[in-house]
């Protein structure tokens, strides 16, 4: 299983929708897409992980790297996670305290707009 990455823009917010597996092999694709978005001037980004079936620590590292990148522009990365297994990975590693996590893209968008 590979990683499928789709990007879109909603009200100036960059949204990345992932589908598949994020591991050492596929994580560089995600890293590259995050860098592209920041280079395009999108500093508030939502990453939708609802269709992610597997994520390892290299995927988490890429998300943290992306967060550092957008924070240097006063931006943010919000996550959409609905699967308990994926949420568990964020809980174990303490990243639930680092990333705002929402149950839908709409919730994440309204949070960014409201802040």
């Amino acid at each position: 299983m590979d990683l499928r990455i789709e990007s879109k823009e909603v009200d100036g917010i960059g949204v990345i929708v992932l589908e598949g597996e994020v591991d050492v092999y596929t994580a560089p694709k995600l890293k590259s897409r995050l860098i592209d978005l920041v280079d395009e001037g999108k500093y508030n980004i939502i990453i939708d992980l609802q269709k992610v079936e597997f994520m390892d620590s290299s995927g988490l590292g890429v998300l943290v790297g992306g967060l550092k990148r957008v924070k240097s522009h006063q931006g943010s990365i919000s996550l959409v996670v609905t699967q308990e297994n994926i949420l568990k990975i964020f809980r174990i590693t303490g990243l639930v305290k680092v990333f705002p996590i929402f149950s839908s893209e709409e919730e994440a968008i309204s949070d960014i707009k409201g802040s």
């Binding site: 590292g61 990243l95 305290k97």
Partner: peptide, 19 residues
């Protein structure tokens, strides 16, 4: 990972295995 720093890029593999 350094316990006080949550923004490490890597180092979460062993904690995940243990958990």
């Amino acid at each position: 990972p350094n316990p006080g720093i949550e923004m490490n890029f890597r180092g979460r593999g062993i904690p995940l295995m243990l958990a």
